[in-house]
């Protein structure tokens, strides 16, 4: 009985993780510019593969391995925003612009103001 419940939990997490990863990939294909694509990769992608790692930890039924999987999950969740932020910053500084549909870019506005002052 416990086996079945455990298998169900792991199965649900696996499928949910798979769906999140798939949707993140779809977002990477469908969204219009690099900044919006980052939203998909850094949120849905991380949560997806993190869920799968978590499922693997639960499946092992070993506290040491579960803790390791959990540490890995925490590590992914903490590094994904940092990576996305670094890349977004580098891309913006390098001059990659936002897609046409964007409404405002106050960062570029302030850079222009600074350039005028100098």
């Amino acid at each position: 009985m416990l086996d079945l419940v455990l298998a169900l939990i792991v199965a649900v997490m696996l499928v949910a993780g798979g769906i999140f990863v798939f949707l993140a990939a779809l977002g990477i294909v469908r969204l219009p510019d690099v900044y919006t694509r980052m939203h998909a990769a850094s949120k849905a992608g991380t949560v997806g593969s993190g869920l799968m790692l978590f499922a693997a930890g639960i499946h092992s039924l070993d506290i040491a391995i579960f803790m390791r999987a959990f540490a890995g999950f925490v590590f992914f969740v903490l590094t994904a925003p940092v990576g996305a932020h670094l890349l977004a910053r580098a891309a913006h500084k390098a001059g990659y612009r936002l897609a046409r549909v964007s409404t405002v870019d106050e960062m570029r506005d302030s850079e222009r103001r600074d350039a005028k002052k100098r």
Partner: peptide, 10 residues
């Protein structure tokens, strides 16, 4: 149909 209005705000 993705309703996108992306932008950077301060």
């Amino acid at each position: 149909k993705m309703a996108l209005k992306p932008g950077i705000f301060a």
